[in-house]
Write a protein that binds this DNA or RNA. Sequence first.
DNA 1: TTTATGTTTCCATGATTATCGAAATGATGC
DNA 2: GCATCATTTCGATAATCATGGAAACATAAA
Lengths: 119, 119
Amino acid sequence: MKTAQAVDTLAALAQETRLSIFRLLVEAGPRGMNAGAIAAALDIPPATLSFHVAQLSRAGLTDARQDGRFVFYAANYAAMDELIAFLTDNCCQGGGACLPKTAAAATSAKRRARAGVAA
Amino acid sequence: MKTAQAVDTLAALAQETRLSIFRLLVEAGPRGMNAGAIAAALDIPPATLSFHVAQLSRAGLTDARQDGRFVFYAANYAAMDELIAFLTDNCCQGGGACLPKTAAAATSAKRRARAGVAA
DNA sequence: TTTATGTTTCCATGATTATCGAAATGATGC
DNA sequence: GCATCATTTCGATAATCATGGAAACATAAA
């Protein structure tokens, strides 16, 4: 993950409403939730929801899937994985300084290996 | 880490210049760098540097230490650790979905235990 | 085809953020 | 004290972002 992409992803999450949306979608699982349901759950006007969801999508944090006249949004776990990998690799002295010892050893290398398969 | 704090921390990092500053400080190690050196390294005017460093500090991502007439800033690894813990715990289906298996098992519980000591 | 429902786009508004020169503040040595 | 260097605050400007009503668009049922 390049720096510019990391900034975009961080910016997408650095907003109360969007973070709430993303967390809701993580809870919802792979099936996701349709726009109206998200808006209802968080009590957000449709236009506002659409605006924020668009930003999450643009950052690659959510996937959209049309189902009838509903649009289901789902959290993209791989994107979050990449962000965490970026933070551990680039903002933690080579992946070691900010993680418990056992996790640190595995994280950097395994994440990169996994990224090659998944992304 | 509470949601509001997570948003603040994410926002602090979600900006090209500030992310560069933080990464520079991570490289610099615990001793850190004084404001002028950071500004010189990244070619930023003093006022702009001060503005961004203040935001990083406000978010708890950097510590400041006065040394003579210099002010040294250092990366706060614990804050980054907390952010990563928040993301894995709250944005990854209970810490599992976004991490390699081996790391995931250790991460959530150990981070929380560690947080109890450090924070 | 009309009607109903879900979602997005358009648009205007207010709020926040980034930038940086100039001036002020703080710290040290003479 | 005064001179010097490091850093921050002030203040103005431009740009970006968040909000949400109204209208447009899309899909499906009657």
